[in-house]
Design a protein around this nucleic acid. Structure first.
Lengths: 206, 206
DNA sequence: CCCGGATGTTAGCGAGCGTTAACGTGATGA
DNA sequence: TCATCACGTTAACGCTCGCTAACATCCGGG
C-alpha cells in the first residue's frame, strides 16, 4: 500500500550493512561495490538511495548520536533522584553498546570523515550527551571537579564501549550477564569520584 | 661516528609522524606524500627507509604490542603480591596510554590492515598481555569467573585508553592528575568483581 | 495499451594512491 | 681523483575507487 515502505526497508538494510562493513574495515577500507554486494545489488545501484558514500556515513553518525542523546534525556527525565538517573544512563548506554556494536564503533572512530556541517552537528549532539552525563555525575558526586567528572565520563564511555573487543565467540558472557557486568564495572569506576570512599587496594606510594 | 645513527633517527622520526597521522585520519586516510611532508622529504623518499606503507604500520603495531607486554611482565615480576601486581599493571598501561596516545589508538583500530603474518604476531602479543592481566585479576578477585575477568580486563583497557577522546586542550586534567584519576577509576571498576562488596548506588530493580 | 516512475544493470571516466624507475648530489675513503 | 654509498628528487605507471551516463526491467494507473 505505501510505496515508500520498500524504499525505507532498502535504505535501512543498506545502512545496517554499511555500518557493519565500516566498523570492520574502516570507512576508506570499504568500497561501494562491497556495500552493494552485501545487500544483493551492485555498486552504483546504491546511488538510487543515497547521494554518495559520505551520505551513508553521515546518516549513520547523526542517527546514533541523536538517538543516544534523546534516549539518555528521556531516561533521565523519568527518574526521581540523581543516583537513579546515573543508573538509567548507564543502562541505556549499555543497550546501545551491545545492540548497536558497529555504530558505537563508528561513532568515535570515523567522525573525521564527515563534511564540516555534518561533523559539527554530530559533535554538538555528542557534546550535549556528555553534558547530560556530567551533570548527573556531578550531582551524585558533588566533590568531583568539572574536569574530573568529564574525564571520568569519557573513561566510562570507553569502558562501556569495550564490547566490540571481545570477538563475539564463546569467549564473552551472554547478553544479560555482560550487561550486568558492565553495569557493575561502570558504577564501581565512578565510585572512585567519592573521596570518602575507603581504599581497598594497595597504594604502593605514588 | 656511527653512520647508522642518522638513519635510525630518520626512521624513528618517520614512525612517530606516521603514527600521529594514522591515528588522526586512519591508515587509508593518509597518503605517503603526507607522511613524507611531515618529516621534510617527499613521498617516494620514504622508500629508502621502509619497504612500503604497510611496513610502517606493521612496525608500529608490533612495537607497541611488544613493549606493552614486556613492560607489563617486568613490572609484575617486580611485585610481591597480586594486589601490587595489579597496581603495577594499571600504572604501566596508563603510562603508555598517556605518553603514546597515537600508538594506543592505532593498536586497537588498524590491526586488520596488516599482512597475515604480522597480524598473527600482533594478536599473539596482545593475547599474552591480556592473559597477564587476567591472571593477576583472578588472583586478586578469586570469585570472578574466567569470562568475567576477561571481559573486565577489556573494559578496563577501554577505560584507560579513553585519553585520546579528551582533545588535549584545557578541558583535560594535567598529566599527573589524569594518571591518578585513571588509576582510581580502574581500581574502582575492578572492585566490582568482588561479590562481597556493598552496594553503593540504587538498584532500580533489574 | 502504453506512459512514467522506481529500481536495477553495465561501461567508463577521472582522480588519487602506492610504488617503481631513473637520475642527482654530497660526503667518505682508498 | 674518483668510485661508492646514503639519501633524496621528479616522472610516470598501473590500479583502485567513487561516481556518472546510458540503458533495461518491472509495474501500477489512466
Amino acid at each position: 500500500m505505501n510505496p515508500t515502505k520498500t524504499v525505507e526497508n532498502r535504505r535501512e538494510q543498506i545502512l545496517r550493512e554499511a555500518a557493519r562493513l565500516f566498523a570492520e574495515r574502516g570507512f576508506h577500507g570499504v568500497g561501494v561495490d562491497e556495500i552493494g554486494a552485501a545487500v544483493g545489488i551492485s555498486g552504483p545501484g546504491l546511488y538510487r538511495h543515497f547521494a554518495g558514500k559520505d551520505a551513508m556515513l553521515a546518516e549513520l553518525l547523526v542517527g546514533i548520536s541523536g538517538r543516544l542523546l534523546s534516549a539518555g534525556r528521556m531516561r533521565v527525565a523519568e527518574t526521581a533522584d540523581p543516583a537513579q538517573a546515573l543508573d538509567a544512563l548507564i543502562r541505556g548506554h549499555i543497550d546501545f553498546a551491545i545492540d548497536d556494536r558497529p555504530l558505537i564503533t563508528l561513532h568515535d572512530r570515523e567522525l573525521d570523515r564527515l563534511r564540516d556541517s555534518d561533523r559539527k552537528l554530530v559533535r554538538q549532539l555528542q557534546r550535549q550527551y556528555v553534558e547530560e552525563w556530567v551533570g548527573v555525575v556531578r550531582r551524585v558526586y558533588p566533590d568531583a571537579t568539572e574536569l574530573e567528572a568529564r574525564a571520568a565520563v569519557h573513561a566510562v564511555f570507553g569502558l562501556l564501549n569495550s564490547t566490540p573487543h571481545l570477538g563475539a565467540g564463546g569467549r564473552a558472557p551472554d547478553r544479560t550477564a555482560m550487561a550486568a557486568l558492565l553495569h557493575r564495572l561502570a558504577l564501581g569506576a565512578l565510585e572512585a569520584l567519592d573521596p570518602g570512599r575507603p581504599w581497598t587496594a594497595v597504594r604502593t606510594d605514588g
